[in-house]
Simulated assay, not measured.
Amino acid sequence: MLRFLSAQSTLILWLIFLVENLLVTAIGLLAGWIILKLGKKPIRPASPTEILTCIGTNLINTAITYAGFWGWQHGYLIFGFDINWYIIVDFLLLFLAMDLAMYVLHYAIHQMALYKVIHRFHHHYRHPIPIDLFVLHPLETMSFGSLWLFTLALYHFNFYAVLIYLSLNVVFGIIGHLGVEPLPAKLRDSYLLKYLGTSSFHHNHHTDIKYNFGFYTSIWDRIFKTYKA
């Protein structure tokens, strides 16, 4: 795949990455819609602002994707391609590293004047819907994208571990912005899911911005006393 991409012109690469990002967004939103429909939950229609912002976020994410590919071509990002058990190790390392890094960035934004300028845009709706995963101020989208590329540059992650992480990133994002909790309390409190970022976990952040800054887990919120059940 990477060899194929390397043979393409810059314009074709941008088009491929744009289609990729739009397709991922469409699949994620469709999955969120299906979950809400199966749960027979009322679905608030997306506003024109949400739709336009979602498109803008995809354009910025396309630029970030291209920057990552360019970084790999020029040796700034180095990936392993072996298929072995290290894939799991690299995935867990990337998963926890990004969870901590995004927790720190997310918490910092809420403590500064930047919140009023940038992040409050994402908190316009106290009860989000799946599309709100992509409703971010452009500067915030670029900040998270830069954090992502910086993390990849720190360590030679396995390429397949990166793909697994990116897939789960969308899954957690959609779940966190369902606006309702599809899982029963008994299952959420089970040992398997207790420390993961469920829909309720992130929904509580939207209703009370002083708590639950984590993305994939509640680990850092529990450690730094910002957790709210």
Rank of each mutant, 00 (worst) to 15 (best):
F4W: 10
A7G: 14
T10I: 06
L11T: 14
L13Q: 12
F17A: 07
V19G: 09
V24R: 01
T25R: 05
W33F: 12
W33Y: 14
L36D: 00
L38P: 07
K41S: 11
R44P: 03
P48E: 13
P48H: 09
E50N: 06
C54L: 07
G56Q: 03
T57W: 06
N58C: 08
N61M: 09
A63W: 03
T65K: 05
T65Q: 06
H74Y: 13
H74C: 01
Y76W: 15
L77N: 04
W85F: 11
I88A: 15
D90A: 08
L92V: 14
L93P: 06
F95C: 08
L96F: 15
L100Q: 04
M102T: 15
V104S: 06
L105V: 14
H106C: 03
H106E: 01
Y107G: 04
H110E: 10
M112F: 07
L114N: 00
Y115A: 02
V117P: 01
V117Q: 06
I118K: 06
I118V: 15
F121W: 08
H123N: 09
H123L: 09
P128F: 07
H137F: 05
G145V: 00
L152R: 03
L152K: 02
N158Q: 14
F159I: 13
V162R: 03
L166K: 14
L166Q: 14
S167K: 06
N169E: 09
V170K: 10
V171W: 10
F172R: 02
G173F: 02
I174G: 03
G176K: 05
L178Y: 12
E181K: 05
P182C: 11
P182G: 09
P184I: 04
P184G: 07
A185P: 03
A185S: 13
K186F: 11
L187F: 09
R188Y: 00
Y191K: 14
Y191G: 01
L192P: 01
L193P: 12
L193E: 11
Y195R: 10
L196D: 01
T198H: 10
S199T: 11
S199I: 07
H203K: 09
H203S: 10
H205I: 03
H205D: 08
T207V: 14
D208V: 00
D208R: 14
K210V: 02
N212G: 10
F213K: 01
F215W: 03
I219S: 07
I219N: 07
W220I: 05
I223N: 06
